[in-house]
Computed example of a mutant assay.
Amino acid sequence: MAAVPQLRVLLLLLAVAAACAAAAETVASGGSTSRVPALYVFGDSTADVGNNNYLPGSAVPRANFPHNGVDFPTSRPTGRFSNGYNGVDFLALNMGFKRSPPPFLAVANKTNKQVFRGLLGANFASAGSGILDTTGSSIIPLSQQVEQFATLQRNISARISQGAADTVLSRSVFLVSTGGNDLFAFFSLFSSKNSTPSDADKRQFVGNLVSLYQNHVKALYVLGARKFAVIDVPPIGCCPYPRSMHPLGACIDVLNELARGLNKGVKDAMHGLSLSFPGLKYSVGSSHAVVQSIMKHPQRLGFKDTTNACCGSGRFNGKSGCTPNATLCENRHEYLFWDLLHPTHAASKIAAAAIYNGSLHFAAPVNFRQLVEDES
Protein backbone atom coordinates (compact mmCIF):
# COMPACT_ATOMS: atom_id res chain seq x y z
CA MET A 1 0.00 0.00 0.00
CA ALA A 2 1.37 3.43 -0.92
CA ALA A 3 2.34 5.91 1.77
CA VAL A 4 -0.55 8.34 1.28
CA PRO A 5 -3.37 5.73 1.32
CA GLN A 6 -1.72 4.08 4.33
CA LEU A 7 -1.71 7.39 6.18
CA ARG A 8 -5.41 7.78 5.41
CA VAL A 9 -6.00 4.29 6.79
CA LEU A 10 -4.21 5.21 10.00
CA LEU A 11 -6.19 8.41 10.37
CA LEU A 12 -9.38 6.42 9.84
CA LEU A 13 -8.37 4.03 12.58
CA LEU A 14 -7.73 6.89 14.97
CA ALA A 15 -11.04 8.52 14.13
CA VAL A 16 -13.13 5.40 14.56
CA ALA A 17 -11.31 4.52 17.78
CA ALA A 18 -12.36 7.89 19.16
CA ALA A 19 -15.91 7.24 17.99
CA CYS A 20 -15.86 3.89 19.75
CA ALA A 21 -14.76 5.52 23.00
CA ALA A 22 -17.58 8.04 22.69
CA ALA A 23 -20.07 5.23 22.09
CA ALA A 24 -18.81 3.44 25.19
CA GLU A 25 -19.35 6.53 27.31
CA THR A 26 -22.87 6.95 25.93
CA VAL A 27 -23.83 3.36 26.70
CA ALA A 28 -22.26 3.47 30.16
CA SER A 29 -24.33 6.55 31.00
CA GLY A 30 -27.54 4.84 29.90
CA GLY A 31 -27.97 7.01 26.83
CA SER A 32 -28.22 4.27 24.20
CA THR A 33 -30.15 1.12 23.42
CA SER A 34 -29.12 -1.92 21.43
CA ARG A 35 -29.42 -1.69 17.65
CA VAL A 36 -30.19 -5.41 17.31
CA PRO A 37 -32.26 -7.69 19.56
CA ALA A 38 -29.31 -9.89 20.51
CA LEU A 39 -25.68 -10.77 19.88
CA TYR A 40 -24.63 -14.42 19.81
CA VAL A 41 -20.89 -15.07 20.00
CA PHE A 42 -18.98 -18.20 18.98
CA GLY A 43 -15.25 -18.85 18.96
CA ASP A 44 -12.05 -19.18 20.94
CA SER A 45 -10.06 -17.12 23.47
CA THR A 46 -10.31 -14.05 21.23
CA ALA A 47 -14.02 -13.99 22.15
CA ASP A 48 -14.32 -15.94 25.43
CA VAL A 49 -15.66 -13.84 28.31
CA GLY A 50 -15.69 -16.55 30.95
CA ASN A 51 -17.21 -19.79 29.69
CA ASN A 52 -14.05 -21.71 30.54
CA ASN A 53 -14.42 -20.60 34.17
CA TYR A 54 -17.24 -23.15 34.43
CA LEU A 55 -15.37 -26.10 32.94
CA PRO A 56 -13.70 -28.72 35.18
CA GLY A 57 -10.09 -29.81 34.94
CA SER A 58 -6.67 -28.25 35.38
CA ALA A 59 -5.89 -28.40 31.65
CA VAL A 60 -8.63 -25.92 30.70
CA PRO A 61 -7.22 -22.56 29.47
CA ARG A 62 -8.41 -19.87 31.87
CA ALA A 63 -7.86 -16.18 32.53
CA ASN A 64 -9.92 -15.71 35.70
CA PHE A 65 -6.95 -14.56 37.77
CA PRO A 66 -4.65 -11.51 37.90
CA HIS A 67 -3.07 -9.76 36.12
CA ASN A 68 -5.91 -10.36 33.63
CA GLY A 69 -8.64 -7.79 34.06
CA VAL A 70 -6.43 -5.18 35.69
CA ASP A 71 -8.10 -2.49 33.53
CA PHE A 72 -11.57 -4.07 33.49
CA PRO A 73 -14.28 -2.22 35.45
CA THR A 74 -13.61 -2.84 39.17
CA SER A 75 -10.22 -4.28 38.08
CA ARG A 76 -11.43 -7.86 38.26
CA PRO A 77 -10.40 -10.88 36.17
CA THR A 78 -13.42 -12.29 34.34
CA GLY A 79 -12.03 -14.98 32.08
CA ARG A 80 -11.13 -12.56 29.30
CA PHE A 81 -7.59 -12.91 27.98
CA SER A 82 -7.05 -9.17 28.24
CA ASN A 83 -6.13 -6.43 30.65
CA GLY A 84 -9.64 -5.06 30.08
CA TYR A 85 -12.23 -5.55 27.36
CA ASN A 86 -11.71 -7.83 24.38
CA GLY A 87 -12.72 -7.10 20.79
CA VAL A 88 -16.20 -8.60 21.20
CA ASP A 89 -16.89 -6.23 24.10
CA PHE A 90 -16.08 -3.22 21.94
CA LEU A 91 -18.13 -4.52 19.02
CA ALA A 92 -21.04 -5.05 21.41
CA LEU A 93 -20.60 -1.48 22.67
CA ASN A 94 -20.92 -0.21 19.12
CA MET A 95 -24.12 -2.22 18.73
CA GLY A 96 -25.55 -0.50 21.80
CA PHE A 97 -24.95 -3.19 24.44
CA LYS A 98 -23.07 -2.59 27.69
CA ARG A 99 -20.45 -5.17 26.70
CA SER A 100 -20.40 -8.74 25.38
CA PRO A 101 -23.46 -10.79 26.34
CA PRO A 102 -22.87 -13.13 29.30
CA PRO A 103 -21.14 -16.51 29.05
CA PHE A 104 -23.76 -19.10 28.16
CA LEU A 105 -22.63 -21.38 30.96
CA ALA A 106 -23.27 -18.57 33.45
CA VAL A 107 -26.93 -18.31 32.49
CA ALA A 108 -27.78 -21.80 31.19
CA ASN A 109 -29.13 -23.01 34.51
CA LYS A 110 -30.65 -19.72 35.62
CA THR A 111 -33.83 -17.90 34.76
CA ASN A 112 -32.70 -14.99 32.62
CA LYS A 113 -35.79 -13.48 31.07
CA GLN A 114 -33.88 -11.44 28.53
CA VAL A 115 -31.68 -14.25 27.23
CA PHE A 116 -34.47 -16.82 27.08
CA ARG A 117 -36.76 -14.44 25.22
CA GLY A 118 -34.19 -13.91 22.49
CA LEU A 119 -32.91 -10.59 23.83
CA LEU A 120 -29.38 -9.55 24.79
CA GLY A 121 -27.87 -12.83 23.51
CA ALA A 122 -25.20 -15.15 24.87
CA ASN A 123 -21.50 -15.80 24.44
CA PHE A 124 -20.60 -19.43 23.70
CA ALA A 125 -16.89 -18.90 22.98
CA SER A 126 -14.38 -21.17 24.69
CA ALA A 127 -10.64 -20.49 24.95
CA GLY A 128 -8.55 -23.21 23.32
CA SER A 129 -11.31 -24.29 20.94
CA GLY A 130 -11.26 -24.36 17.17
CA ILE A 131 -13.14 -25.25 14.03
CA LEU A 132 -12.04 -28.86 14.47
CA ASP A 133 -13.40 -30.91 17.36
CA THR A 134 -9.88 -32.24 17.90
CA THR A 135 -8.36 -28.80 18.52
CA GLY A 136 -7.70 -28.28 22.23
CA SER A 137 -8.81 -30.48 25.08
CA SER A 138 -11.38 -30.22 27.87
CA ILE A 139 -12.96 -27.22 26.17
CA ILE A 140 -16.05 -26.48 24.05
CA PRO A 141 -15.39 -26.90 20.29
CA LEU A 142 -17.32 -24.84 17.76
CA SER A 143 -19.63 -27.74 16.94
CA GLN A 144 -20.66 -28.01 20.59
CA GLN A 145 -21.12 -24.25 20.82
CA VAL A 146 -23.61 -24.52 17.96
CA GLU A 147 -25.37 -27.32 19.84
CA GLN A 148 -25.59 -25.10 22.92
CA PHE A 149 -27.20 -22.39 20.82
CA ALA A 150 -29.67 -24.97 19.50
CA THR A 151 -30.68 -25.66 23.09
CA LEU A 152 -31.15 -21.96 23.72
CA GLN A 153 -33.09 -21.55 20.47
CA ARG A 154 -35.55 -24.24 21.55
CA ASN A 155 -36.04 -22.46 24.87
CA ILE A 156 -36.66 -19.15 23.10
CA SER A 157 -39.20 -20.73 20.73
CA ALA A 158 -41.02 -22.33 23.66
CA ARG A 159 -41.34 -18.98 25.42
CA ILE A 160 -42.25 -16.58 22.63
CA SER A 161 -43.52 -18.92 19.86
CA GLN A 162 -41.62 -20.19 16.85
CA GLY A 163 -42.70 -17.32 14.62
CA ALA A 164 -41.59 -14.66 17.07
CA ALA A 165 -38.32 -16.53 17.65
CA ASP A 166 -37.64 -16.65 13.91
CA THR A 167 -38.17 -12.89 13.68
CA VAL A 168 -35.93 -11.94 16.60
CA LEU A 169 -33.15 -14.33 15.58
CA SER A 170 -33.19 -13.15 11.96
CA ARG A 171 -32.52 -9.60 13.18
CA SER A 172 -29.83 -10.63 15.67
CA VAL A 173 -26.08 -10.77 14.95
CA PHE A 174 -24.13 -14.03 15.04
CA LEU A 175 -20.44 -13.30 15.57
CA VAL A 176 -17.79 -15.96 14.91
CA SER A 177 -14.11 -15.54 15.85
CA THR A 178 -12.10 -18.73 15.52
CA GLY A 179 -9.46 -20.61 13.54
CA GLY A 180 -6.15 -19.59 15.08
CA ASN A 181 -5.91 -22.57 17.43
CA ASP A 182 -6.45 -24.99 14.54
CA LEU A 183 -3.54 -23.40 12.69
CA PHE A 184 -1.28 -23.54 15.74
CA ALA A 185 -2.12 -27.22 16.25
CA PHE A 186 -1.35 -28.03 12.61
CA PHE A 187 1.95 -26.15 12.76
CA SER A 188 2.93 -27.79 16.07
CA LEU A 189 2.31 -31.24 14.62
CA PHE A 190 5.06 -30.67 12.08
CA SER A 191 7.43 -28.64 14.26
CA SER A 192 7.43 -31.42 16.86
CA LYS A 193 8.91 -33.63 14.13
CA ASN A 194 11.38 -30.94 13.03
CA SER A 195 9.69 -30.74 9.64
CA THR A 196 7.55 -28.26 7.73
CA PRO A 197 4.24 -28.92 5.98
CA SER A 198 4.28 -29.14 2.19
CA ASP A 199 2.12 -26.87 0.06
CA ALA A 200 -0.20 -29.83 -0.54
CA ASP A 201 -0.46 -30.45 3.22
CA LYS A 202 -1.37 -26.81 3.82
CA ARG A 203 -3.95 -26.68 1.03
CA GLN A 204 -5.64 -29.87 2.21
CA PHE A 205 -5.72 -28.75 5.84
CA VAL A 206 -7.05 -25.27 5.12
CA GLY A 207 -9.61 -26.68 2.70
CA ASN A 208 -10.89 -29.03 5.38
CA LEU A 209 -11.16 -26.16 7.87
CA VAL A 210 -13.12 -24.02 5.42
CA SER A 211 -15.51 -26.90 4.66
CA LEU A 212 -16.19 -27.46 8.36
CA TYR A 213 -16.59 -23.71 8.90
CA GLN A 214 -19.26 -23.69 6.20
CA ASN A 215 -21.07 -26.56 7.91
CA HIS A 216 -21.19 -24.66 11.22
CA VAL A 217 -22.57 -21.56 9.51
CA LYS A 218 -25.19 -23.68 7.72
CA ALA A 219 -26.23 -25.23 11.05
CA LEU A 220 -26.71 -21.77 12.57
CA TYR A 221 -28.68 -20.69 9.50
CA VAL A 222 -31.06 -23.64 9.92
CA LEU A 223 -31.55 -22.56 13.55
CA GLY A 224 -32.58 -19.07 12.47
CA ALA A 225 -29.36 -17.07 12.07
CA ARG A 226 -29.27 -14.64 9.14
CA LYS A 227 -26.70 -11.96 10.01
CA PHE A 228 -23.15 -13.27 10.35
CA ALA A 229 -20.29 -11.11 11.63
CA VAL A 230 -17.06 -13.01 11.01
CA ILE A 231 -13.67 -12.06 12.48
CA ASP A 232 -10.72 -13.38 10.51
CA VAL A 233 -7.41 -14.65 11.90
CA PRO A 234 -4.67 -12.05 12.52
CA PRO A 235 -1.02 -12.60 11.52
CA ILE A 236 -0.57 -15.08 14.37
CA GLY A 237 3.02 -15.82 13.40
CA CYS A 238 3.94 -12.38 14.77
CA CYS A 239 2.54 -12.92 18.27
CA PRO A 240 5.10 -12.99 21.12
CA TYR A 241 4.85 -16.77 21.55
CA PRO A 242 5.81 -17.69 17.95
CA ARG A 243 8.49 -14.99 17.95
CA SER A 244 9.96 -16.54 21.09
CA MET A 245 10.48 -19.78 19.13
CA HIS A 246 12.18 -18.17 16.14
CA PRO A 247 16.02 -18.15 16.31
CA LEU A 248 16.10 -14.49 15.22
CA GLY A 249 12.92 -13.42 16.98
CA ALA A 250 11.14 -12.83 13.68
CA CYS A 251 7.58 -13.69 12.72
CA ILE A 252 6.98 -17.32 11.76
CA ASP A 253 6.02 -17.12 8.09
CA VAL A 254 4.31 -20.52 7.88
CA LEU A 255 1.75 -19.50 10.49
CA ASN A 256 1.04 -16.22 8.71
CA GLU A 257 0.69 -18.05 5.40
CA LEU A 258 -1.83 -20.44 6.96
CA ALA A 259 -3.77 -17.50 8.38
CA ARG A 260 -3.95 -15.80 5.00
CA GLY A 261 -5.09 -19.03 3.36
CA LEU A 262 -7.82 -19.64 5.92
CA ASN A 263 -8.99 -16.03 5.75
CA LYS A 264 -9.34 -16.15 1.97
CA GLY A 265 -11.12 -19.49 2.13
CA VAL A 266 -13.62 -18.28 4.73
CA LYS A 267 -14.25 -15.04 2.85
CA ASP A 268 -14.96 -16.95 -0.37
CA ALA A 269 -17.12 -19.46 1.50
CA MET A 270 -19.26 -16.74 3.10
CA HIS A 271 -19.78 -15.14 -0.30
CA GLY A 272 -20.88 -18.49 -1.72
CA LEU A 273 -23.26 -19.13 1.16
CA SER A 274 -24.83 -15.69 0.75
CA LEU A 275 -25.67 -16.60 -2.85
CA SER A 276 -27.11 -19.99 -1.94
CA PHE A 277 -29.07 -19.31 1.25
CA PRO A 278 -31.93 -16.78 1.05
CA GLY A 279 -31.61 -13.89 3.50
CA LEU A 280 -28.08 -14.72 4.63
CA LYS A 281 -26.04 -11.54 5.10
CA TYR A 282 -22.49 -11.27 6.30
CA SER A 283 -19.45 -9.14 6.95
CA VAL A 284 -15.89 -10.40 7.35
CA GLY A 285 -14.00 -8.14 9.73
CA SER A 286 -10.26 -8.24 9.17
CA SER A 287 -8.33 -8.30 12.42
CA HIS A 288 -5.48 -9.32 10.11
CA ALA A 289 -5.55 -5.94 8.33
CA VAL A 290 -5.82 -4.00 11.59
CA VAL A 291 -2.87 -5.74 13.23
CA GLN A 292 -0.78 -5.26 10.10
CA SER A 293 -1.57 -1.54 10.13
CA ILE A 294 -0.60 -1.24 13.78
CA MET A 295 2.66 -3.09 13.23
CA LYS A 296 3.58 -0.93 10.23
CA HIS A 297 2.86 2.43 11.88
CA PRO A 298 2.60 1.83 15.65
CA GLN A 299 3.48 5.31 16.91
CA ARG A 300 0.80 7.02 14.84
CA LEU A 301 -1.74 4.90 16.71
CA GLY A 302 -0.21 5.39 20.13
CA PHE A 303 1.76 2.13 20.38
CA LYS A 304 5.43 1.83 21.28
CA ASP A 305 5.80 -1.95 21.48
CA THR A 306 4.41 -4.39 18.91
CA THR A 307 6.66 -7.38 19.62
CA ASN A 308 6.66 -8.00 23.39
CA ALA A 309 3.76 -9.06 25.55
CA CYS A 310 2.81 -6.68 28.33
CA CYS A 311 2.28 -9.59 30.74
CA GLY A 312 4.28 -12.81 30.67
CA SER A 313 7.77 -14.17 31.06
CA GLY A 314 10.80 -15.25 29.05
CA ARG A 315 11.79 -14.06 25.60
CA PHE A 316 9.40 -11.37 24.33
CA ASN A 317 7.38 -12.12 27.50
CA GLY A 318 5.98 -14.83 25.26
CA LYS A 319 7.16 -18.06 26.84
CA SER A 320 4.22 -18.33 29.25
CA GLY A 321 0.84 -16.77 29.83
CA CYS A 322 -0.20 -13.91 32.09
CA THR A 323 -0.26 -15.16 35.69
CA PRO A 324 -0.13 -13.41 39.08
CA ASN A 325 3.64 -13.98 39.15
CA ALA A 326 4.29 -12.79 35.57
CA THR A 327 6.10 -9.60 34.63
CA LEU A 328 3.58 -6.79 34.10
CA CYS A 329 4.26 -3.62 32.12
CA GLU A 330 3.06 -0.27 33.43
CA ASN A 331 2.21 1.48 30.13
CA ARG A 332 -0.32 -1.12 28.97
CA HIS A 333 -1.98 1.21 26.46
CA GLU A 334 1.30 1.38 24.51
CA TYR A 335 1.45 -2.38 23.87
CA LEU A 336 -0.14 -4.26 20.98
CA PHE A 337 -0.01 -7.57 22.85
CA TRP A 338 -1.35 -8.23 26.31
CA ASP A 339 0.01 -11.76 26.69
CA LEU A 340 1.72 -14.34 24.52
CA LEU A 341 -1.16 -14.49 21.99
CA HIS A 342 -3.82 -11.86 22.72
CA PRO A 343 -4.17 -8.10 22.13
CA THR A 344 -4.44 -5.42 24.78
CA HIS A 345 -7.59 -3.51 25.62
CA ALA A 346 -6.20 -0.60 23.58
CA ALA A 347 -5.52 -2.72 20.49
CA SER A 348 -8.94 -4.39 20.72
CA LYS A 349 -10.64 -1.00 20.83
CA ILE A 350 -8.95 0.13 17.62
CA ALA A 351 -9.63 -3.18 15.88
CA ALA A 352 -13.30 -3.20 16.79
CA ALA A 353 -13.74 0.42 15.77
CA ALA A 354 -12.15 -0.15 12.37
CA ILE A 355 -14.18 -3.30 11.72
CA TYR A 356 -17.43 -1.71 12.83
CA ASN A 357 -17.14 1.68 11.14
CA GLY A 358 -14.25 1.34 8.72
CA SER A 359 -13.68 0.93 5.00
CA LEU A 360 -13.61 -2.22 2.89
CA HIS A 361 -9.96 -2.56 3.90
CA PHE A 362 -11.13 -3.62 7.36
CA ALA A 363 -14.51 -5.25 6.72
CA ALA A 364 -16.17 -6.54 3.54
CA PRO A 365 -18.46 -6.64 1.65
CA VAL A 366 -19.92 -4.20 4.18
CA ASN A 367 -18.70 -3.13 7.60
CA PHE A 368 -20.34 -4.36 10.78
CA ARG A 369 -22.37 -1.19 11.23
CA GLN A 370 -23.93 -1.62 7.80
CA LEU A 371 -24.66 -5.28 8.60
CA VAL A 372 -26.33 -4.31 11.87
CA GLU A 373 -28.41 -1.57 10.27
CA ASP A 374 -29.51 -3.66 7.26
CA GLU A 375 -33.25 -4.29 7.65
CA SER A 376 -33.94 -5.56 4.13
Rank of each mutant, 00 (worst) to 15 (best):
S287L: 11
A351H: 03
L142N: 07
Y282S: 04
D166M: 10
P240G: 10
N194R: 14
S313C: 06
F277T: 06
A346P: 00
S192D: 07
N112P: 00
T151F: 13
K98N: 08
S75Y: 08
S376A: 10
P343G: 13
P298S: 10
D199A: 15
V70Y: 08
N123Q: 06
Y221M: 10
D182S: 10
I294P: 12
P240N: 12
G358V: 10
D48F: 07
A47F: 07
F205E: 01
F228K: 09
S138A: 15
K113S: 07
H288Q: 11
G84K: 13
R154W: 01
N181Q: 15
V176R: 01
I236D: 02
D44T: 07
F81D: 09
E257Q: 14
N308R: 15
S82M: 10
V222S: 08
R159E: 06
G265Y: 07
R260P: 00
S143M: 01
Y335S: 04
T306I: 15
R99W: 03
L7K: 11
K193E: 12
P5C: 09
Q370A: 14
E334V: 01
V168N: 10
A351Y: 00
L340V: 00
A108V: 03
S143W: 00
Q6E: 09
A351P: 00
P247V: 04
W338S: 11
L258C: 12
A2W: 01
A28H: 08
L93C: 12
D339I: 05
T167N: 13
A225V: 04
R62M: 02
H333M: 01
G261R: 14
S177I: 05
S320R: 14
Y241V: 01
F184M: 13
G87H: 04
G302S: 11
A200T: 11
G265S: 08
F228S: 08
R332V: 12
I350D: 07
T327M: 06
T46D: 05
I355P: 03
N86I: 15
C238M: 09
A353W: 13
N51Q: 12
C311E: 02
A164Y: 00
G30Y: 06
P240L: 06
N52W: 09
L91S: 11
S75G: 09
L175S: 12
Q214N: 09
C251N: 04
A200E: 12
A125F: 06
V284Q: 13
N325H: 09
Q144C: 03
G136M: 11
A127C: 05
K304E: 05
I160Y: 05
V70D: 01
R35A: 12
D201H: 13
S161D: 13
L255E: 04
V9A: 15
P235E: 04
L328E: 06
V16K: 15
N263Q: 07
A352Y: 05
I294W: 12
P324E: 09
N123R: 09
F97P: 03
L275D: 02
N51A: 11
C251P: 02
A269F: 00
K227M: 07
L258T: 07
S32D: 05
P343M: 12
L142M: 14
G224W: 03
A250T: 03
G179K: 04
L275C: 11
S286F: 04
A122E: 02
K218V: 14
G249V: 03
Q6L: 13
S100Y: 05
A106P: 00
E25K: 14
L119F: 14
V266D: 01
G69H: 10
L11R: 15
P77Q: 08
T323D: 09
S75D: 05
